[in-house]
Design a protein around this nucleic acid. Structure first.
Lengths: 197, 197
DNA sequence: CTTATCTCGTATATTCCCGTACGAGATAGG
DNA sequence: CCTATCTCGTACGGGAATATACGAGATAAG
């Protein structure tokens, strides 16, 4: 992203930033949000938006890229060393809202962007969580009786569900982190004994 | 003003059954499935469909009612007595796909049907699962550190996710039941010790 | 200041889907 | 066999959303 854009004015840059922010915000809640609505939320005219994003798919992709980059930044800022359970707690605490949002946006993009493109963009995010899960297995603190991919997906689903419940006001912001952590830890934990069967 | 009895012919009955089945199938996967697509999947013409369901909301409601009735039938056929963990296993084994489908269809109906109508239809289904969770708590085998409503929702989310993974061919039919059971049991189980923190 | 760039309104074309109207042909059921 | 019922095609109108065309005015950058 360095250097020679022949000519892009500062206000244009600002408009683009506001549009992608609004797109992230609205598309996370309603996958079918109107371009009009996004433009209005961004505080720009519809035609301005079209000036920067030729088609709806372009806009969705831009929003997805933005949120995934933010997610990557957050993930890489978290200390993932030490006990995998503690690392997981730190990861969830600092990023559960963001990850949940990215999941919603991902679902938004599902039918608008080609599947290959999505997987390409999403690539790194899930891999990092998978890596953490694998490390926890090697430490003997995470379960080995279920596939890693499935466990990673369950984490996603729990986060998504928590975000939805939170938006609906059915769980408070203060409790959310604790609830998410307790739930996810239970799913990943290695069975301490043989509790049943 | 021809006041004729609503006497229905056998072939009409058959068409209706095929339409609702197709609606269940398509709407569970894509909430925005078109009426054309549903008619085509049902093997009937679009106008035939309109002959039985005047509006889209009618069709969605019919599909929702059908799947909820099937769910109710399945739930009441399962023996929910004895150890709550075993009861939960029996419930999941015999109905996890159905419950997942009902959840997906419920999401479809969100925004098409008035909220009151949905709650009215959905009434019993979730309550029974919640009741089972409460019973497990009283038995001391299910956790008490998280809200019942949250736990019920997590079960829904896990089932939904499993159905999606299964459709995408990422988990095999044979493994699905085991994976779902193991995951859900972990979430609901009362912590055997204080494993961490 | 000058210019290229950006903003943004109006108008219009297009596409998609819903729902209705009309009517001809097929079929169940007495 | 006769009739009410059902099937289903074509066609039309309404509405919503996407996307393009044209152009006038505002503004950042050199």
């Amino acid at each position: 992203m360095t250097s020679t854009r022949p000519r892009r004015r500062a206000d244009a840059e600002r408009s683009i930033a506001r549009i992608t922010a609004a797109a992230r915000d609205l598309l996370s809640r309603d996958p079918d949000a109107t371009i009009d609505a996004i433009a209005e939320a961004a505080g720009v005219g519809r035609m301005t938006l079209y000036g920067h994003f030729k088609t709806r798919a372009d806009l969705v992709e831009a929003a997805l890229v933005a949120v995934l980059e933010a997610g990557e930044a957050t993930l890489s800022a978290v200390d993932l060393s030490g006990d995998a359970r503690d690392a997981l707690s730190r990861l969830l605490a600092s990023s559960w809202e963001l990850v949940a949002e990215s999941a919603a946006l991902l679902a938004s993009a599902q039918g608008v962007l080609p599947a290959g493109r999505i997987r390409e963009l999403h690539g790194g995010a899930g891999d990092r969580v998978a890596e953490l899960v694998r490390r926890g297995r090697d430490q003997g603190v995470f379960r080995t009786d279920l596939p890693v991919d499935w466990l990673v997906n369950v984490v996603q689903y729990v986060l998504h569900g928590a975000a939805e419940e939170h938006r609906g006001g059915r769980i408070a912001t203060a409790d959310a982190a604790r609830i998410v952590d307790a739930t996810v830890q239970s799913v990943l934990a290695a069975p301490s004994h043989n509790p049943h069967t």
